[in-house]
């Protein structure tokens, strides 16, 4: 019995020894590259809408003993709109979580497709932000970016980003609508008009904003198309000729980040406008609440839009709306 025990123990021990004896291979740390290198990340999310920014962070570096950075530039396939620029500061985040900029170069004015920064500080590594304001010329097209950097050693590196599809839709934020005042909404013009103005643009008025506090029913804030049943426009006389019937579909929980600017990472894209079917929808929407919205299709079938209610004010009989619009 004891002999058996000894036999097994020694066998086990030798197995353990055998296992520990098998030494792992040493991991190899690759030698750091010293030549000029670069990398880019895109910081903006969601559909790319004309007038908004496309933001990139462009990082470039080479070994300090090798040389320093001379210039960084971006070439966009379509020239950016006014306000397109490249930061001449490099940022670090301080203890309080704030980004603190240090100037490292001179920003040259954007010339056509090219935006450039020449380094003035003796620096061998930097990350510069690039803000491309999407121009009208890019609507519905694709944009690509060529980032490049040069160093004092004469090396040049490039990094291609894109192509990025620029959305066809338009956007207008924060329009104030007030009952019995600025209450006539035109999707075609992306504007709000008073009754007098509406009378002169009768063929462009798609919606009327109303606020009614009627005991016993939930009317409150409403978007009614002028062609709707007059019972949904109590005590309202429409200006002559304002009679378009717009299809409206109420929506809840669709807080597009561009329109709402809230924490929700939801975006309405061109595709949503193309796919939505509003054929059987009514031509009015009552009891609209803050953070709700409505899909809209104009009577002539030229536009589809999403009207988002940013806020409502019962006492002021008013609301703040933002619109995304897509031309069919």
């Amino acid at each position: 019995m004891q002999r058996n025990f000894l036999k097994y123990t020694s066998l086990l021990l030798s197995l353990v020894l055998l296992m520990t004896a098998c030494e792992e291979e040493k991991s190899i740390i690759p030698p750091a590259r010293t030549e000029l290198q670069n990398d880019v990340i895109k910081r903006t999310l969601g559909p790319n809408i004309v007038g908004l920014n496309l933001e990139f962070a462009y990082a470039m570096a080479l070994a300090p003993e090798r040389g320093k950075l001379v210039s960084a530039q971006v070439e966009a396939s379509i020239p950016g709109a006014g306000g397109t620029y490249m930061e001449n500061k490099t940022y670090y985040t301080n203890g309080s979580g704030q980004d603190v900029g240090t100037e490292v170069g001179t920003a040259l004015p954007t010339e056509g497709k090219i935006t450039k920064v020449n380094f003035t500080k003796d620096t061998s590594a930097s990350t510069l932000r690039y803000y491309y304001v999407i121009p009208e010329a890019a609507r519905g097209q694709e944009v690509t970016f060529n980032f490049s950097a040069t160093s004092s050693t004469g090396e040049t590196v490039t990094y291609k980003m894109g192509p990025y599809k620029i959305a066809k839709m338009d956007m207008k934020l924060d329009m104030a609508v007030t009952d019995a005042a600025a209450s006539y909404i035109s999707i075609a013009d992306m504007a709000v008009y008073t009754a007098e103005e509406a009378a002169t643009k009768a063929d462009k008025i798609d919606l009327v904003y109303l606020y009614r506090s009627i005991p016993g029913i939930m009317f409150n804030h409403a978007l009614v198309s002028p062609g709707a049943n007059p019972e949904y426009m109590p005590d309202l006389t429409l200006p002559a000729g304002v009679n378009r019937s717009t299809k409206i579909k109420k929506e809840w929980n669709l807080r597009d980040q561009h329109l709402a600017r809230l924490q929700f990472g939801v975006f309405i894209d061109d595709l949503d406008f193309e796919k939505i079917n509003l054929t059987d929808m009514p031509n009015y929407a009552l009891n609209m609440r803050a953070e709700s919205g409505a899909w809209v299709e104009t009577a002539d079938g030229r536009y589809r839009a999403y009207v988002y209610i940013n806020s409502v004010n019962n006492n002021g009989k008013s609301a703040r709306i933002s619109i995304k619009r897509y031309a069919l």
Binding site: I217, M218, F219, A222, Y232, K249, D280, M281, P282, Y284, L286, N287
Partner: peptide, 9 residues
């Protein structure tokens, strides 16, 4: 149902 409910949808 509420006043103004769209009964078709």
């Amino acid at each position: 149902v509420f006043y103004g409910t769209d009964l078709r949808n």
